[in-house]
Amino acid sequence: MSASSTAADVIQKTIVDEAKAEAKRMIAEAEVSARQLTEEATENAKTNLTGWADRRRQMAQASGDRIIGKARNDAHMKILTAKARIINDAIEQARKRFEKERGTAQYKVFLKNLIISASIQIGGGDVVVSARKEDQAIISKITGLATAISKVAGESAKVSIGKKPLEMIGGVFIQNKEGNITVDYRVETLLAQVEQQKRNEIAKTLFPKIEKTETGKE
């Protein structure tokens, strides 16, 4: 082997070795860079998804709240419906009992008092009383109506019975002669008024033990 060929071998080896070393460095740097990219992407993904995940978790919790809220509403409705059914039953029974009482002396007094009270509200004068056909006969026999009315109203009064009988449970419907002032004392109207006015008393009487536990809440 000559000296020149040995030197040439060294140069060649150096050129190749340098290339290999550079290649190794390039790949190592690329791998570091790749790791950094992956780590950054993971961090970014976590950051980006934090808000999204929190919202999804809140929505999951809210879906539970909605289910419970609906159950509470349904429970409340069940209780209200049960109460309404019983109150309606009581009103219906009261109506039936009233129908049975229409032939009594107390009912006659009741009609008389209704007519006097309503006529005074109208202010006396000529009043027309509408009633059931059966009650028209009772009213026609009541005496002293005009006197009782004029005594309180302060002017003369005349009570006449409307020609057309009304279909109703009982009571009277009264208007002045002109027909522009009316007082509705029909029993169905009075029952509705009693239901409104005595709502609390009726509820407390029907359900004395329930008042504090009816919300359905746990």
């Binding site: 109460k83 019983i86 029974q93 009261a94 009992r97 029993v187 009693v194 359900f207 329930i210």
Partner: peptide, 24 residues
């Protein structure tokens, strides 16, 4: 409620009837 209501309905009907008569 049903049980209590059934038990107390007569008393309640009395109150309602009394309320109606009070208008007269």
């Amino acid at each position: 409620l049903e049980e209590q209501g059934t038990k107390n309905i007569k008393k309640t009907v009395d109150i309602i009837i009394k309320g109606v008569y009070a208008f007269g």
